[in-house]
């Protein structure tokens, strides 16, 4: 009599975990690979060091925001402050939808946008692309990369104004 056994199915457990890179949550500057002694960026002094998968982490000129699983804004980069015309201190702890809304013509309401962020906050490790617009503005759309970041666990939204 054969006993049922658990078997590893193809495709599961084989995904490579993408290495995380460190960058400043304000100026976006990439940090040295070695763990920094301080969590504060030594370049601008105004941001904490955050980690994200290499493919998600913002480039030198990409604006970005960080939100938590409750969709509250935790950080706004210097370039995002300029792009969105907001000050980080004014929007911290406010809902993300006060700042950004989905702008995908195919999307129905904000559910897809919200569920993407909630899934990313749970750390599912997948970087997704979405189209968003500034709240209260029409005619402007930005492509974004959305995925998990740490620490603590949060969601990184990288805006790509040039597509």
């Amino acid at each position: 009599m054969t006993r049922p056994q658990l078997q590893v199915l193809p495709g599961y457990g084989e995904t490579d975990v993408e290495p995380y890179v460190d960058f400043c949550g304000h100026c976006g500057k990439r940090q040295e690979a070695a763990a920094p002694a301080s969590r504060v960026c030594g370049n601008c002094h105004l941001g904490l060091i955050v980690s994200a998968p290499g493919s998600l982490a913002p480039g030198a000129k990409e604006p970005f925001l960080i939100v938590d699983g409750r969709l509250q804004v935790c950080a706004v980069s210097r370039r995002a402050e300029r792009l969105l015309g907001i000050a980080e201190a004014d929007v911290v702890d406010r809902q993300l939808t006060d700042v950004l809304l989905p702008a995908d013509a195919e999307a129905v309401g904000v559910e897809g946008f919200v569920s993407t962020i909630v899934h990313a906050a749970r750390g599912d490790g997948i970087v997704r692309d979405l189209v968003v617009r500034p709240a209260g503005e029409w005619g402007i759309r930005w492509f974004t990369r959305i995925g998990p970041c740490a620490t603590p666990s949060a969601v990184l939204i990288v805006l790509a104004p040039n597509g």
């Binding site: 949550g25 304000h26 969590r39 504060v40 105004l46 941001g47 904490l48 955050v50 960080i66 938590d68 935790c74 950080a75 706004v76 980080e88 201190a89 911290v92 702890d93 603590p152 949060a154």
Partner: peptide, 10 residues
């Protein structure tokens, strides 16, 4: 700062 994601929020 230990649990923050930005200086503003901390």
């Amino acid at each position: 700062l230990k649990e923050g994601l930005s200086i503003s929020s901390a």
